[in-house]
């Protein structure tokens, strides 16, 4: 089974995000970079598919030189090899460009199933899986919490508002992972040692032969709107405080 897992390097969820004074983006200086948490579920699922059914797992990642660290993490978890798309031409890429770039690489690789995270927690676009699926003309199964492989098809559970769907799709297909799919493993020490020797193919934009002009542009990055300071309800007696809270919610906030 040929399995592809797409991973993106993102700021750690604890990272303080500071908007640049001119609104052109965020200050990257202090940020600690990690693998997108949803991609951990994708990589874990890829490894489990391989362990059960044989085959190999290829990591594909687009990002600057620092993304290599995240690629090594995926290799240390157990993936076999990787492609790193690295070119300043992608600095202002949007999901459309990223999806097409990943597709251009994946087209050249044998693939039965392609795993992505349901969204990257930095830009929170949640688009790349679908963009990639369209570029490869494959079915997509987004926001999946359970995946069963059955020879030439997969069955997945996909929660929607107020229900869960059981969907079957033929291979190859694109699946986007969300929390609940599995419990991602940590890289072991031997895994980390082995990862250093695993092959990573670095490709630039020219090698892919795709347009790098973004369709959507972040014209400006702005800090979140300020929230007025809240009211702390004082007093000693919880009963009184609850009554005051109820009154404020009804009369002042009109929320009840």
């Amino acid at each position: 089974m040929n399995i592809i897992a797409c991973v993106k390097q993102v700021p750690d969820t604890e990272a303080q995000i500071k908007v640049k004074a001119d609104g052109s983006g965020i200050e990257e200086g202090q940020i600690k970079w990690v693998m997108n948490p949803y991609d951990e579920y994708g990589v874990e699922e890829a490894l489990r598919l391989k362990e059960k059914n044989g085959g190999d797992v290829t990591i594909v990642s687009l990002g600057p030189a620092r993304a290599m660290e995240t690629i090594r993490t995926a290799l240390a978890m157990g993936a076999d090899k990787a492609v790193h798309i690295c070119d300043p031409a992608f600095d202002n890429a949007d999901a459309f460009v990223v999806g097409n770039a990943l597709a251009a690489v994946i087209k050249t690789l044998p693939h039965d199933i392609i795993l992505c995270g349901q969204r990257a927690i930095d830009d929170d676009a949640g688009q790349v899986g679908a963009m990639l699926a369209e570029a490869l003309n494959l079915p997509q199964l987004t926001l999946v919490t359970k995946l069963d492989f059955a020879g030439s098809s997969v069955k997945v559970i996909r929660p929607i508002e107020g229900a869960q769907l059981l969907i079957e799709t033929s291979l190859p297909c694109v699946v986007t992972a969300q929390k609940g799919l599995n419990e991602p493993r940590y890289a072991s020490l031997p895994g980390i040692m082995k990862a250093k020797k695993k092959p990573v193919d670095v490709k630039n934009a020219a090698a892919l032969g795709i347009a790098t002009e973004a369709k959507a542009k972040v014209a400006k990055t702005i800090p979140p709107p300020a929230r007025a300071a809240g009211k702390i309800i004082c007093g000693e007696d919880p009963v009184q405080k609850a009554a005051e809270l109820g009154r404020l919610l009804r009369e002042e906030a009109k929320a009840i």
Binding site: F96, G126, A130, M131, E134, Q140, L143, P159, I160
Partner: peptide, 23 residues
């Protein structure tokens, strides 16, 4: 930006080769 809307909007944006701002 519901579950269905997110799934559909990304695929449609790809088909139309246009930009999409999510959520």
């Amino acid at each position: 930006a519901s579950v269905q809307g997110k799934d559909l909007s990304s695929r449609v944006a790809a088909k139309l080769a246009t930009g999409l701002a999510t959520d």
